[in-house]
């Protein structure tokens, strides 16, 4: 230890009563939470997991025990350790921060590490499949490299000259906030997975997709950036393919309002610069809760 203890009795006994009560109550609640799990013993559940290399494969059933607080990724790891050592899956943070563990759980595009088993009906098998909009590699792993290639096609961040002689900039928090919403993106590509332009029409090379429109919006609205990417958005990034179904927004685990806050303002910029009949439509639709025209499988 660093040094002898210094006891300061009097000054610390004044933790407000309300706080102490809060802590004690919360302790009781926490204890209650664990009691219920002790009471239910070990239950087990069936996971219907996609197994396959490349395009061929099948759903296979695995049963494993479930315990309090488990998420789908835990179940997959347990299955890996118990019966399917070579079951391929990507993950890193197990806390919804890295965007590695995207999959389709009971048909819904989700992060496996943030999907609690308690949200699912365990009476029926839980299906776990890879993101279907991307070429399959093996089991739950898909080839997401098109997203990395698409990003390279977007022109890079280019700041205005520094505001202060020491080479720094000034920026209001409000301006920062606007792009911070977009910069929260964890590149899980779930939005790309549900977008019909990519999923059903496979236009990966023509349309950069919602994730990269968020990236472009971040650049276009960045308080320091001075490039104008409007022409690119129209000509090479295919923003016109988006017909604002908002499916992407619904699956975003970071709750980024992809369509309203990123895509529509970009479309408006394109419209302002070029006459574009679809763009006109966009303005009409904006503000309304536009109907979903495809893919019921969103939360």
């Amino acid at each position: 230890m660093d040094a002898g203890p210094s006891v300061r009795e009097k000054k610390v006994s004044s933790v407000t009563e309300a706080l102490a009560r809060n802590v004690v109550e919360s302790g009781q609640r926490a204890a209650a939470r664990s009691d219920t799990s002790a009471g239910t013993e070990k239950r087990s559940a069936t996971f219907r997991v996609w197994r396959g290399a490349g395009p061929t494969g099948e759903l296979r059933d695995y049963s494993t025990s479930v315990s309090e607080g488990m998420v789908v990724l835990d179940a997959i790891h347990q299955i890996q350790a118990e019966t399917a050592g070579d079951l391929a899956v990507r993950w890193n943070c197990k806390a919804g921060k890295c965007g590695s563990c995207s999959a389709e759980i009971n048909g819904m595009p989700r992060l496996m590490c943030m999907t609690r088993l308690s949200e699912l009906d365990l009476q029926k098998p839980v299906t776990v499949e890879p993101m279907r909009a991307f070429p399959p590699v093996k089991d739950l792993v898909t080839d997401v490299s098109s997203n990395f290639r698409a990003k390279k096609r977007i022109r890079r961040f280019t700041p205005r000259p520094p505001d202060a002689p020491d080479g720094t900039w000034r920026m209001a928090q409000a301006d920062a906030d606007r792009v911070q919403e977009f910069r929260k993106c964890i590149e899980c590509f779930l939005c790309q997975d549900v977008c019909h332009v990519l999923r059903d029409h496979h236009l990966h090379e023509q349309f950069i997709g919602p994730r990269l429109l968020v990236h472009a919006a971040q650049l276009e609205m960045h308080p320091l950036d001075i490039l104008d990417r409007t022409d690119d958005l129209k000509e090479s990034h295919g923003i016109g393919y988006c017909n604002i179904t908002k499916c992407c927004t619904k699956v975003c685990p970071e709750n980024i309002t992809i369509t309203d806050n990123a895509i529509i303002p970009l479309k408006e910029r394109v419209v302002d610069k070029h006459y574009d009949p679809l763009g006109k439509l966009v303005r009409l639709v904006r503000g309304r809760n536009s109907a979903d025209r495809h893919q019921g499988e969103v939360r």
Binding site: D2, A3, P5, S6, R8, V12, V15, A20, G27
Partner: peptide, 26 residues
């Protein structure tokens, strides 16, 4: 940080080399 009794125990033991830099009261 508080223990189950609601006591803010971190005040109970402050190392010598940090004493000058640590608050006296909540």
């Amino acid at each position: 940080l508080v223990n189950k009794e609601g006591r803010r125990f971190m005040f109970d033991d402050i190392p010598e080399n940090y004493r000058n830099q640590t608050a006296d009261s909540e």
